[in-house]
Design a protein around this nucleic acid. Sequence first.
DNA 1: CTGCTCGCTTGACATTAATCAAGCGTCGGG
DNA 2: CCCGACGCTTGATTAATGTCAAGCGAGCAG
Lengths: 232, 232
Amino acid sequence: MRTEKRQQVKALRLFSEMSDAAFDRLLAGSFLQRFPAHVVLIREGDSADFLHVVIDGGVELFSNWKDRETTMSIARPVSTFILAAAIKDAPYLMSARTLESSNILMIPSENIRSAMVSDSAFGVSMVTELAVCFREIVKAHKNLKLRSGVERLSNYLIELDSAQNLSGQITLPIEKKLLASYLGMTPENLSRAFATLKDYGVIVDGATVTLSKISDLRTLAKPTPLIDGRES
Amino acid sequence: MRTEKRQQVKALRLFSEMSDAAFDRLLAGSFLQRFPAHVVLIREGDSADFLHVVIDGGVELFSNWKDRETTMSIARPVSTFILAAAIKDAPYLMSARTLESSNILMIPSENIRSAMVSDSAFGVSMVTELAVCFREIVKAHKNLKLRSGVERLSNYLIELDSAQNLSGQITLPIEKKLLASYLGMTPENLSRAFATLKDYGVIVDGATVTLSKISDLRTLAKPTPLIDGRES
DNA sequence: CTGCTCGCTTGACATTAATCAAGCGTCGGG
DNA sequence: CCCGACGCTTGATTAATGTCAAGCGAGCAG
């Protein structure tokens, strides 16, 4: 693996406390692979042989039941996904597919488990990382259970504005169809939700969204760090 | 703390690998307290000073937003709750209240964190426990996002039947109002969902529910271990 | 250039779930 | 014993969301 990419991975909270030697042992048997867009990397129900790391590109985590499908989360560089399944050596609960052409690092689950027992600092990093993941999905669950579609969209836009310099001018990082699935609604309903928010100063032009009356929008959205922030 | 209760706590997956000495250190500064029914133990947003363990009784974890409230999960003896907040020393994301008169053990979060760095086996136990918690809430999220109210109820009943000896005769462990909130619907809607399931052999008499046509019910419910099982 | 696919939007309609209101039965306190 | 609170149920109504259908426009292959 190229040095630059190795450094990016090593810089992750999960690995930063490890010695270089331990990190090298962890990477033994790993491989970095480039996948085209829209390739399924993981199918839910399969056994979790690898921990995956998005080096660049993007990955959608999704689930199916009966004839329905929903987006559970979106993994962006540089971050890991399906950590819990890798630890438990249990079946994946979510499927994963690339959104765009992506570089994915795959680390054998077995390496993760053995590193955990031999290196207690790594164990602590794992605990911390998992606690963060847990808190994120608790937030997602609260979001879905306590808010309507329009409210979820409003808060999503406000959070995006925070992530993009609070300029009131944001660019949707994913296509609307995917956003709808992520927010737990149909594409038709997302369109209508945007239309509803016109009264709150939300102007949509393709992937560009302008929030011209942010205070009005915030009054409607009522964001709170107990649901909306990102966990650090 | 009484020996018997100490053993119950020690037997939890989270603590079973520790030495007795380390476990005693962990319990230093902890206290066991009896609370009456319907007492709020934790308010979301407060800082997480203690890891809580339900020794007996029962605890509801719930969240509020605006004027809405929802049940996130129900903790039964003997299990811990709000582990992730305790680890991260971050604000609780959920509130907690007793369902009945309950004994609660409270262990200072600081003890958990220090035990984690000094005892790597404990670290591994923590990772495992958190991975289980994470997978449970992923399932809850899929359940809510992929299924309708009637489908969620059907699967709940089937799972309860599995937990209660597959006799086809089950007793609801919680009152219907709480069940409704847990399943993400109003009490009125839960009543109607039960009425809908009459056609599938579901007969309700107070807290007693008879599943007289389980195969029909399963056809409707389509349970899957990727959503419904309990994580071990 | 043409024709196709696909993302997106809008309208009409169906389904699902929430709200409002009323009524029943149990339980516990006065 | 009676009363009132509360859990639960049912009906009527409204609100939210999903489904079906049509159409527009960008982008791409032939």
